[in-house]
Amino acid sequence: MKKLLILLLSAIKLSICAQIGINTKTPKSILDVNGDMNLRGKLSVPNAANNQLTTGVNDQILVSQGEGYPPIWKTLRIPDYEQNKFYLIFSNSFSDRTGVKFTSSEESTNGASISTSLVKNTNISALNLFRKISSLSQPFTLYSATSKMYFQFETVVQADFPSNGNPDISIDYACGIFVDDKLVNLRQRNIKASSATNTFITHNQIGIAENLSKGNHTVSVACARLKSYNSSATLGIGINVATNIDSFITQSSLKVDAYEVPEVFNPVTN
């Protein structure tokens, strides 16, 4: 009886304070297994919602919640990708109400050499007086070398023109979509005075970039005033320059979609 009591007390003490090592003399946790382990029965973890043990359901995995918190069961959803097909990997949209303004003295010198200076992959640093619309500069990440990027930019352009006269009153301007500060798409337009004062127009632009390098990138939109015709009016792109419209109406938006051909196909086994 005395031996049995000693053995029982030793077991209780071991269960309270000891660390158990299997195939190791220096366990680093309550149970430290140095080697393979086969589990033939159920595995249960506490459920924080009801403080009961749960074994999860079919196809769930255990996910760590960090130090001091019990793991939880999560359902693993793996998309079914087919090789050599494009899939939408990233999609987001952004808006801006600050826009950019240009006076008649702030015309880009690129207006005189559009066909040679406003060409694909030109760095924005080489373009004169192109100004970024601040909140439309945004990061994105690509995971495949085979990709297609779609950019859709929309804004409102206004000039504080008087009513149109003879000869016509108008302004040429341009907006470019840039990736990592390199030009991937450009649209040039003209805003013309009408019978009413303070003319405004809607500007829509879609750009495409293919097979960018894997990793982190930044998309941005920048615009410039190119040339004025019989006008000293102020030009606003994405911002109003007169009170017949406001910043809500003139705000800019940018939609970014990334399609990729996935490069890694991991087999999923049950």
Rank of each mutant, 00 (worst) to 15 (best):
V100C: 00
S91K: 14
S95I: 03
F153A: 12
N110T: 10
R77L: 12
T141M: 07
V156Q: 05
S115H: 13
I124A: 07
S170T: 05
L183M: 13
D168H: 08
F102R: 00
D168N: 14
R131S: 01
N123L: 10
S93R: 09
N166M: 14
G165Q: 03
Q83W: 05
K182T: 10
T75A: 11
N164T: 12
R97N: 05
D180R: 11
F94P: 01
L183E: 04
A159F: 00
T75N: 10
L136R: 08
S105Q: 07
Q138S: 08
F140M: 09
N92W: 04
S104I: 00
N84A: 12
Q152I: 15
D180T: 05
G68A: 11
F86H: 09
N123G: 12
D168Y: 13
F178K: 12
N185M: 06
G165P: 02
F161I: 08
S91Y: 10
N185V: 01
G165D: 02
T122Y: 05
Y150K: 15
K74W: 06
A145M: 02
E106A: 05
N84M: 10
S108D: 02
R77D: 07
D96G: 03
I169A: 01
G165I: 11
V157G: 04
N84I: 11
S144Q: 07
Q83C: 09
S113P: 00
R77M: 11
I133H: 02
S105R: 02
R189G: 11
K182D: 05
W73I: 07
E82D: 09
A174H: 07
P71D: 15
E107W: 00
S137I: 04
Q158L: 03
K182C: 08
A145E: 14
S115M: 14
